[in-house]
């Protein structure tokens, strides 16, 4: 993938990050370099190597279905930007999603 395929403004919008024009330019170039680096893989002969999404070899790491104590509610709610009673209060949702 080359940097021409990278729509930095679109990616920033999806990630809810506001970028200035300068930043679009700068980060676009940096991300393009990263993709270019990964693209060197295309020069290698990888036919015999199966695709993977994980670099560690472990499999099936699970835990037993046991209940453990949760956090104290006050501790949690005091960490929220806004609260109302026992709830976290957030801006209206309509128009998003």
């Amino acid at each position: 993938m080359s940097s021409e395929n990278l729509d930095i403004a679109y990616v920033a919008k999806l990630a809810r990050i506001a970028l200035t024009d300068d930043e679009v330019e700068r980060f676009g170039a940096q991300l393009g370099d990263l993709l270019g680096h990964v693209a060197t893989l295309a020069d290698l002969d990888l036919d015999s190597i199966p695709a993977t999404a994980q670099v560690v070899e472990s499999r099936n790491v699970v835990r037993e279905d046991c209940e453990r104590p949760s956090l104290d509610r006050e501790t949690v709610l005091n960490g929220a930007p806004q609260r109302q009673g026992a709830f976290v209060r957030v801006p209206r949702i309509i128009g998003q999603a």
């Binding site: 790491v61 699970v62 835990r63 037993e64 279905d65 046991c66 209940e67 453990r68 104590p69 949760s70 956090l71 509610r73 949690v76 709610l77 026992a86 709830f87 976290v88």
Partner: peptide, 30 residues
Amino acid sequence: GCANRFGAEPNTLICPVCMGMPGSLPVPNA
């Protein structure tokens, strides 16, 4: 390990993992 229970008092069954706190790691339930 937070309890999976309907009808509990609001916001009493939460921990760093289900709240996505940095540094917490999820482990699947067998």
